[in-house]
């Protein structure tokens, strides 16, 4: 009934999972910074890489620190988190995709200005 948990006796040893997870996280963080700011590759590639690193680090935390698979509820916990991630990806990518069509129109271009419209004087303070 206790499922995949381990007894307190097993915790007498050195917390390897935590140290390894921690070091990997630091490495991934530093690598991500270096690639984003220092590397000489295209923006698109950089985006894929840094987000890839982010997801890897997230899973490191989930499995190694948060004991997500542990206990009789492990499957539910994993499934729940995966569905959350599924929804997250749909909402973010879906929203960006939907609004991509609107960016191409003049008034909705990136800085909120239409090139042909007269420049307004004060726009910053509401």
């Amino acid at each position: 009934m206790a499922g995949k948990t381990h007894s307190s006796a097993e915790h007498e040893h050195f917390p390897w999972k935590h140290v390894v997870g921690f070091i990997l996280s630091i490495v991934l963080t530093i690598l991500a910074f270096w690639i984003a700011i220092g590397a000489e590759i295209g923006s698109s590639a950089k985006l894929w890489i840094i987000f890839g690193f982010a997801f890897i680090q997230a899973f490191l935390q989930l499995f190694m620190f948060m004991h997500m698979t542990e206990s009789e509820n492990g499957t539910v916990q994993v499934g729940n988190t995966l569905f959350g991630l599924f929804c997250a990806i749909i909402f973010v990518i879906g929203s960006v995709w939907i609004f991509a069509a609107h960016y191409s129109h003049g008034e909705n271009s990136k800085d909120g200005y239409s090139p042909s419209a007269p420049k307004q004087s004060e726009h910053s303070e509401k």
Partner: peptide, 18 residues
């Protein structure tokens, strides 16, 4: 948080000249 991220990405770059 994903909703906040979606909002962030959609509004990215919309700095209104500021």
């Amino acid at each position: 948080f994903s909703t906040l991220f979606a909002t962030y990405f959609v509004l990215h770059g919309r700095t209104a000249g500021g």
